[in-house]
Write a protein that binds this DNA or RNA. Sequence first.
RNA 1: GCGCCCGUAGCUCAGUUGGAUAGAGCACCUGCCUUCUAAGCAGGUUGUCGCGCGUUCGAUUCGCGCCGGGCGCACCA
Length: 590
Amino acid sequence: MLPHKQIELSLQTAVRAVLPDADVAAVLVRPCDPKFGDYQSNALMSLAKTRKLNPRQLATDVVANLDVSAVCEKVEIAGAGFLNFRLKNSLLGQTLEAAARGEHLFFAKAAQPKTIVLDFSSPNVAKPMHVGHIRSTGIGDALQRTLRLLNHRIISDNHIGDWGTQFGKLLLGWKQILNRAELERDAITELERLYKVINAECDANPARLEEAKSELVKLQAGEAENTAIWKEMIALSQKQFDTIYGRLGVRFEQALGESFYNPWLGEVVNELLRRGIARESEGAVGVFSDGSLPQKEDPFLVNRDSEWVADPALVRKSDGGFNYMTTDLATIDYRLKTWSPKEIVYVVDDRQSGHFKKLFLTFARWKSEEAKNTKLVHVGFGKIMGEDGKPFKTRSGDTVKLSDLMDEAEERAFKIVSEKSPALPETQRKEIARVIGLGAVKYADLLPNRQSDYVFSWDKMLALQGNTAPYLQYAYARIKSIFRKAAETFNVQHSTPNIQLAAPEEFALAKHLLNFGITLEAVADELRPNYLCNYLFELAVHFSRFFESCPVLKADDEAARHSRLALCDLTARVLKQGLDTLGIEVVEQM
RNA sequence: GCGCCCGUAGCUCAGUUGGAUAGAGCACCUGCCUUCUAAGCAGGUUGUCGCGCGUUCGAUUCGCGCCGGGCGCACCA
């Protein structure tokens, strides 16, 4: 068991001894400012507050019942009632040695693994994937990797947009203006062109719109020709998705598109109608407020001219078609029946938060038992802005395609790699550029708090200085370089080294390694990969300081050399594992 | 109009149950490569945490009211 967990459990036991009825779940320890110690708990102050106790007195009583002598030096009570813990050096050494033997990598698997459905990325058929998909895909992938690492069962499901009104226009375009040669050359661009041309015509000419609608009706009715074309469009899009996800290194357990749920949509609406959850209005069918929430908090109400009016969740349009609320309801139902998840997490743009509020409330009304046992979570995120402060676009004002973005990242990285390491063969420089370019883009996207908008800047992410992926990859490459040199100079020893820490840089690095697991758990609890980014950046900073001031291969004696090599190896392993958890690769040399 | 999100250093942003003197990167200045990768390290400068009131031993964090910005408000997803 990792030291901080031992402290936590001992502390909880001590708290229970003093306050038998206290809820100790919130009695936790956190890494803290080194001037106070290695770990700190401030839980006693809030316990004292709710019970109107003197916090210093409570702390004194708890410490009297606390036995952490195997783990820590004397526990200090400080300030208003903080408990400060300083690890015993012997235990720190033992923990590192156990890690060096491969017994752990500073994190523990979840005691109670959960089944979680993760819904992310969700690109649309017949459209190019663009920057708008980076955040959902990158955050979603980092979350699935984190949760899997902690032993949870994750069903990642790509809810592809393969159904909807746009197919009427696409079908019309396919039949009338398709350029077969272009379709073979670049299918997505040609499909996009079809949509744009027909869409413009529909805007200008209602008769064209009627034509498109009738194509859609035929598709929805299962007419053979349109169904065949639709399937071909999906297949062509799937190729694009496969290429891009391949480059990104993102995998899904499932890719059940919207159309998968078509067979159930009619019954969903019928049941909602039958049970009075939905009703007809202006020809459409919608779910309206049931009045169970205060007006201000009710997503089914909107205030217009200081009057609260209905803002229903429509589940059937007046033309009889269904919309995405219906599909999403059927999707939840299917997921629950198929996988019995504890949670369903949607990694989707914050702008859809209103939709999810309505969706979750509607589902709770529809299937109240299931809803009680399942947590539905919307993990929202902000927009990507250009350096002009407006949504990120190309110079000509188009959305930036993901494939172009990745190409440019690799090209820019290649220039820098060639400049910094001209001696490396070109094939190797290309591979390094691929890993660094892609890593820089992914990291820049994961680093900001997900809920805020962030500014996309090539120069910032590929300046390759400061808190960027290349800085972390560089730290890793430097470690690997040490081991290459070590292999030339010494017989590489596989015996377990004794860790002996002396320099302050060694202690700081070692103690930071121990916090990997706390960080992973924080990412999992709050679904925020940026915590891991910051942890890894700090780890790289600690390593760089160590690297500057503590010679490894030229250490004073063999024992120190072995100890430092072990520290290097553990740092490399955590860096690699951590970056992998963010979906970012490393290179041995750069 | 109503709701949601945001406002922290010149710029871009962190800030983990409310905690101790609010942090990082960039930019700017000064040192450090005949010694493990200088894509680095060490040091220096930078703040009415939008404004006000309240709760609290303690507020960037919680509540209320303003100001400023973004987004969303029935048959697109």
